[in-house]
Simulated assay, not measured.
Amino acid sequence: MPRERILITGAAGFLGSHLCDRFIKEDFHVIGMDNLITGDLRNIEHLFQLENFEFYNHDVSKFVHVPGKLDYILHFASPASPIDYLRIPIQTLKVGSLGTHNLLGLARAKKSRILVASTSEVYGDPAVSPQSEGYWGNVNPVGPRGVYDEAKRFQEAITMAYHTFHGLDTRIVRIFNTYGPRMRLNDGRVLPAFIGQALRGEDLTVFGDGSQTRSFCYVDDEIEGIYRLLMSNYTQPMNIGNPDEITIKQFGEEIIKLTGTKQKLIYKDLPADDPKQRQPDITKAKEILGWSPKVNRAEGLKITYEYFKSLPEQEIKHKDFTYYNKH
């Protein structure tokens, strides 16, 4: 029996590369696609020798053609860190709108099931906590984060339109803060930023007073939740994340303890529209998918820290994220 075929966009990114690994493990024929604007081929180079993996260097904001049948599409192409989407705001909007439109059209032509990667950022700076899928959010469409937030909100809207109007088989996952190996060091997100500063012997930068919260999900748990959602019959948006909430100040103190750094926390002004709370309500994931996170933060952070420590010294020392697009 021939292998099922799956297209994964954003395949050279953090989550995309782990998804490639998971579907190879499940004996799929995996077609990875990435334009490498923020992705890194090192994340998937171990797959290149496999007969059931192929890679297309392509921008999904332009017409997407994949020969042969496609059983599934996972749309994970998008900048995901503030540093990236503030640097390339137009591309961020285009991959969420034009890119999603192109892939929905491809899914319709191929009669594929498509799962699109949305984000907890659709909730903006939430007025309720924890955030359930029924909460509509509090988003500033013209603020600095609007290019990412609204790209994802449009992505959800057009996906549901294809589902209701064309009867397309769609899934929407709302991803909360996820961490683990293959994250890009110094990509602007709090966890790699803290660990990068600790490894360089710098003080850890907290924005605001540190009372804002985040909830961190280890990558293996996140991938399992995404896999189960794709294989389920559930077509409404679903939160996949870890509800174990912690303040940024407490998290910085955990990183100092983990890394043994002698540095301290320093405080800077909070960026505009930065969410004060981020905690997923995962009731639907538990009830419908039988999913909940298994890896506790102490265990996941230890694995992630060891990964970052193993990176080449020049990467650890280099604070400018553009380094990764040049080497």
Score class of each variant (00 low, 15 high):
242 N>V: 07
242 N>M: 07
242 N>F: 08
243 P>V: 13
243 P>N: 12
243 P>Q: 12
244 D>Q: 14
244 D>P: 02
245 E>I: 15
246 I>Q: 03
246 I>V: 13
247 T>N: 04
248 I>H: 10
248 I>Y: 13
249 K>Y: 09
250 Q>N: 14
250 Q>H: 12
251 F>M: 14
251 F>S: 03
252 G>R: 01
252 G>I: 01
252 G>V: 02
253 E>P: 02
253 E>L: 12
253 E>R: 10
253 E>M: 09
253 E>Q: 13
254 E>S: 10
254 E>D: 07
256 I>N: 02
256 I>W: 02
257 K>L: 07
257 K>T: 09
257 K>C: 00
257 K>W: 02
258 L>W: 00
258 L>H: 01
259 T>L: 00
259 T>S: 10
259 T>K: 00
260 G>L: 00
260 G>M: 00
261 T>P: 01
262 K>T: 10
262 K>E: 13
263 Q>H: 11
263 Q>P: 00
263 Q>K: 15
264 K>V: 07
264 K>N: 13
264 K>L: 00
264 K>E: 13
265 L>M: 02
265 L>E: 01
265 L>K: 01
265 L>I: 00
265 L>A: 02
265 L>S: 01
266 I>L: 08
266 I>A: 05
266 I>H: 06
267 Y>I: 01
268 K>A: 07
268 K>Q: 10
270 L>V: 08
270 L>T: 07
270 L>P: 00
270 L>Y: 05
270 L>Q: 09
271 P>F: 03
272 A>Q: 14
272 A>S: 10
273 D>R: 04
273 D>K: 01
274 D>H: 12
274 D>V: 03
274 D>M: 10
275 P>W: 04
275 P>N: 06
277 Q>S: 15
277 Q>H: 15
277 Q>N: 14
278 R>G: 14
279 Q>Y: 09
279 Q>H: 10
280 P>C: 11
281 D>E: 14
281 D>S: 14
282 I>L: 09
283 T>R: 14
283 T>C: 08
284 K>Q: 15
284 K>F: 11
285 A>H: 10
286 K>E: 15
287 E>R: 11
289 L>D: 09
289 L>S: 06
289 L>V: 05
289 L>C: 07
290 G>A: 04
290 G>E: 09
290 G>K: 04
291 W>L: 05
292 S>W: 09
293 P>V: 06
293 P>S: 07
294 K>F: 07
294 K>G: 07
294 K>T: 13
294 K>H: 14
294 K>Q: 15
294 K>N: 14
296 N>D: 15
297 R>G: 06
298 A>G: 07
298 A>I: 11
299 E>M: 12
299 E>I: 12
299 E>L: 10
301 L>T: 08
302 K>A: 13
303 I>Q: 11
303 I>Y: 05
304 T>G: 05
304 T>I: 09
304 T>E: 04
304 T>P: 08
305 Y>C: 02
305 Y>D: 03
305 Y>G: 02
305 Y>K: 00
306 E>N: 10
307 Y>S: 07
307 Y>P: 09
308 F>Y: 11
309 K>S: 06
309 K>D: 01
309 K>R: 12
309 K>Q: 13
310 S>R: 03
310 S>G: 13
310 S>D: 06
311 L>D: 03
311 L>K: 02
311 L>P: 07
312 P>A: 08
312 P>R: 05
313 E>R: 12
315 E>T: 11
316 I>E: 02
316 I>Q: 07
316 I>K: 08
317 K>A: 13
317 K>F: 02
317 K>I: 08
317 K>E: 13
317 K>W: 01
